[in-house]
Design a protein around this nucleic acid. Structure first.
Length: 348
DNA sequence: AAGTATTACA
């Protein structure tokens, strides 16, 4: 008996592969995906392998997907191909849930020796290393990249640069950067954020200047790191100049950039400017609220800190440990021990 | 078949 779903013939001008890919993309829920999955398991055809691979990558990567399901599909392949491995490695590299799982998968891939890593594999597993700061593993992967000639891929190059930068191995990062022939916007932004991260403010700003010199226009991602460098340096004049630059160049004012500006103004002693930026933001997430609250705390503005904390809860944004550092340090500033205890125990 | 860079911590 056929499953409940029926497969229409693909419209003309579409290959069967394209048709299956679009079918899986359009899956409204996991149940439908399971039905399609079941169909291909039940009726093996030359196309089934392709379809199962697509289902695997969809489950691993799509936001409506499901990693457990991806794993189940993956385990059914006796010999997964490189595309399957890559989908798994990337799917398990979640910033929200850091784990060494992608690194374990990579090692398992090498051990089995059926599929060989390509530039996608290395870029994905290096990203995973940079999330969990797996310095030793990342260095080994760097040497694999070199040995197998995969370090000529710009994605691998940037992944290596980003990995060393996240591990705060800034000298390694810089030597990777210097070896990259095509230092595009992303590569330069990665290096700038690395310098900003370790507090090498002048180096960050020098690179920012240099990229404009060679005619590469910074975007909103670049500017977040540049602003953060100003914040770390406490360089108000420079920060204001950079803010004006953002407006002059019509750079997209997004959530991240707004948050960076709030932090910069707060750290440079301009709490009212920070507040203005905050008020101009249409959307505020945990980090935006927390930066504002911590800013008030730094300035001893207890009432503002507490009021914003209440407003944050009202707008259903979840506080995290940074928010509480802000709230509690504001209370500490004014000796409001009882208020502090109240907020801590959640009876705000 | 697919991909790179972003911020807050008394």
């Amino acid at each position: 008996m056929l499953p409940k779903i029926s497969f229409k013939l693909p419209p003309a001008k579409q290959t069967v592969e394209e048709y299956i890919a679009s079918l899986i993309q359009k899956c409204p829920n996991l149940r439908t995906l399971h039905q399609i999955h079941g169909h291909f398991l039940k009726y093996p055809s030359p196309i089934s392998h392709y379809a199962l691979t697509k289902i695997l990558s969809f489950s691993a990567l799509s936001s409506s997907g499901n990693l457990r399901h991806a794993r189940k599909v993956f385990d059914q392949f006796p010999q997964p191909n490189v595309f399957c491995w890559n989908s798994m490695i990337r799917g398990f590299s979640l910033v929200q849930h850091p784990s060494k799982e992608p690194i374990i998968l990579y090692k398992e891939m090498l051990r089995r020796g059926f599929a060989y890593p390509n530039s996608y594999t290395l870029a994905f597993v290096l990203k995973a290393c940079s999330i969990v700061l797996a310095f030793w593993e990342g260095m080994q992967i760097h040497s694999h990249a070199y040995k197998h000639g995969l370090d000529s891929s710009m994605f691998v190059q940037n992944a290596l640069l980003n990995f060393y930068a996240k591990c705060e191995e800034i000298d390694y990062a810089r030597s990777v950067f210097d070896e990259i022939p095509d230092r595009n916007l992303v590569v330069r932004s990665t290096m700038i954020s690395g310098y900003a991260r370790v507090g090498l403010v002048n180096e960050a700003l020098e690179l920012f200047r240099e990229m404009q010199e060679v005619g590469i226009e910074p975007d909103e991602v670049t500017m977040v790191s540049v602003i953060s460098a100003c914040a770390k340096a406490g360089a108000l004049d420079l920060g204001r100049w950079v803010h004006a630059f953002i407006e002059r160049k019509k750079i997209k004012f997004d959530l991240e950039l707004g948050t960076a500006l709030i932090d910069m103004y707060a750290k440079c002693g301009q709490i009212e400017r920070a507040r203005n930026v905050f008020n101009e933001m249409e959307e505020k997430d945990t980090k935006a609220w927390s930066s504002m609250i911590v800013g008030f705390a730094i300035h001893g503005l207890v009432d503002d800190a507490l009021e914003h904390f209440s407003r944050m809860l009202e707008s259903k944004v979840k506080p995290n440990h940074v928010t509480f550092i802000g709230v509690l340090s504001a209370c500490a500033h004014s000796g409001l021990v009882n208020d502090g205890r109240r907020f801590w125990s959640g009876h705000a």
